[in-house]
Simulated assay, not measured.
Amino acid sequence: MCGRYVMARAAGDLVALGGGELPDEGLELRPNWNVAPTADVPILVERVLEGADAGGGGTVRRELHVARWGLVPPWAKELVVGSRAFNARSETVTSKPTFRSAVRARRCAVPVQGYYEWRTPEPGSKGPDGKAAQKQPFYVHPAGAGDGEGEVIWFAGLYEWWRDPEADARGEDPWVLSASILTMDSPSHDDADPVLAQLGELHDRLPVPLTPEAMDAWLEPVKLGSAEEAEALVGRMTAEAFDVARGWALRPVGREVGNVRNNGPQLIEEREEPQGALL
């Protein structure tokens, strides 16, 4: 799964990396080294701007927007629904009511510089102090970009618009843009590739990363005609995901990442892992 991640890049950098545009030239992203569900996050979408027709014609533009992390479907009664929908399982995304409409028509890419995952110790294992071993957080990031600069990961995501009735009643802008990250089964912990094996040992779920070609297909602003078409597209994304993940690196970090009040580049600094290195 993906429950915390890092995004400290400027909006202009993300637009350059993702090949998009800024519809709001004044958009500023606050650096966040501990992004948690319900926070504002950047997402990349493609929109048909004009001349749309039944054959899919029209001018298409890739844009960077800011969304609330945690998808809120249009039929939700309250915004809090999104706090439980920050990840969408690839195996059920086409059938689960919260996500099935979005996966057919409203797909996005979520840029991250890296994400945090917690490894659960083996039952009965002990720490250096002789006490029961604790979970150990790791920072997963593109190899060669461990300092938070350079390459980013683009995760497959979904987005929705939700109308807030309370804001509407106050005469304020009622529209809330929200997003979720697609996840899949992790690689096997005994995979022949050392990075994939590490990811498999770390957690049983993996956020779905996109190759450049897969991102083009995922972002294409067409409404899929059936759940079967959506399943085929999701299947293509998950089939290529491990190719991206092979280019990642992992390192142990401090347990401070578990508290959302802690923020700053010190969170991704490597810490000695008391329980030993990953496989």
Rank of each mutant, 00 (worst) to 15 (best):
T120R: 11
D147W: 10
A241T: 05
R61L: 12
E229P: 06
D243N: 13
R68C: 01
I268F: 09
T120Y: 00
L49T: 14
K223V: 15
V80N: 13
P174V: 09
G51P: 04
L27Y: 08
A239E: 12
G114H: 04
P194G: 04
A143H: 03
G51Y: 05
W118Q: 13
S226T: 13
D24R: 15
K131V: 02
A230S: 09
V15A: 02
E63M: 12
V72P: 12
G127A: 10
N263I: 08
A36W: 07
E91H: 09
V45R: 15
V66M: 07
G55P: 12
L29P: 01
G144V: 11
R4N: 07
G130A: 10
T94Q: 12
N87R: 08
T94L: 08
K96Y: 14
T183D: 07
G3T: 10
C2E: 10
P221Y: 08
Q136Y: 00
L44S: 02
K126T: 01
L79P: 03
A197D: 13
R205N: 11
G200P: 05
V140F: 00
A88S: 15
P265H: 01
K126Y: 00
Q198Y: 07
N87C: 06
R106P: 13
G82A: 05
V60I: 14
S95P: 05
S186I: 01
L14S: 04
I153T: 14
L250C: 12
A67V: 02
V208M: 04
G57R: 15
D193S: 03
D53Q: 01
N263T: 11
G171L: 05
G130D: 11
K77C: 00
A227D: 15
V72L: 09
N87I: 04
G56L: 01
D147F: 12
A169R: 15
R68V: 04
A105H: 05
W118C: 11
G26I: 08
P252Q: 02
E256Q: 15
G57Q: 13
A145M: 11
E228W: 11
A249S: 15
P187M: 04
V45S: 01
T38A: 10
E91V: 08
G56C: 03
A10F: 10
V41Q: 11
V253W: 01
R89G: 06
V208C: 04
G200K: 02
A11C: 07
S125N: 09
E117D: 14
